[in-house]
Amino acid sequence: MARATRPAAGSVAPEPAEAAPEVRSEATRGESHGRRVRRALLRRFRRPGALLGVVLLLVLLAAAVLAPSIRRHDPTAIHYRALQVGPDAEFWFGTDDLGRSVFARVLHGLRTSLWIGAASVGLALVIGVPLGLVAGYAGGRLDAAIVRLLEIDLAFPSILLAIAIVAVLGPGTMNTVYAIAASTVPIYALTVRSTTRALAQRDYVQAARALGASDGRILLRHLLPGVVPPLLVITTVNVGSAVLAAAGLGYLGLGAQPPTPELGTMLSEARAYLRQAWWMSVFPGLTITCLVLGMNLVGDALGDVYDVRAAGKRG
């Protein structure tokens, strides 16, 4: 589906929608393709929303990577003389009920949250992408069978599926990852499947097959690269939703468990002190919101460029 970029401020006539059709998710548009994508990306990411997203993500990623050298305090160290003090020069984000630096804990919580997000999305990709490739390429009964399986998975509202899985396996960080991955596999698989189906009809794939390339080679060399752009978009957005889902499980008492600092669990614990110690919930809350917001803004922008709709996302 073609779509226009936003008209620049002040211009009255809508811009012609020239960018989108050229930059579709295909790996075979000749040399000019890469350049066009780059140009479209540059143009899209110059807009304030997308720019904000990139800045947020860069800052947070840097904070997570550099956490051990930025923080002044150990995230588990207890300061008996500074129980629940507000932000000051010593403790930038204040201290929590146990006298631990909220700044240090937010930094480390960010690492845990990012790890959960990345691990669950990674696991879902590892399962979902091959399923989608095979279904889309093979077609016929195998395709129908895989699609039915995915529809069965999709039939369970995702948080409900996740808590049912946690009910069976028990709470904990790894089980949270499994639960979130299980509820997101169909999104990747179905996206990859539809892209693969479209690509499999393309001339270059047909040509490769005529030249006697094996199925495995076609899948890996010709089809897999083509599904990367839509996956990139969905993955970006879903790392954010995985972080939120993990936080929700943490709130229900079914997620990552303390003392591991995790943003959702921290926020959930700090809720009790909303009126007495706002800093305990505001900083982890803002961090989580900025992280997910950044993912969403970047995902949206990538989606515009690659023309992928992330609307089928599960909640």
């Binding site: 008209p7 002040g10 939120l244 936080a247 959930s268 989580i288 919101t289 992280l291 997910v292 969403n296």
Partner: peptide, 30 residues
Amino acid sequence: KSRVVEFFVSVFPLVGLSLPTFWSGLLLIT
């Protein structure tokens, strides 16, 4: 057509999408 309006209407809904529900719920209650 306004860049400012565009910025806000494209970012604001995403903020709603990025808030943990249990936290926004408590903020609403408060």
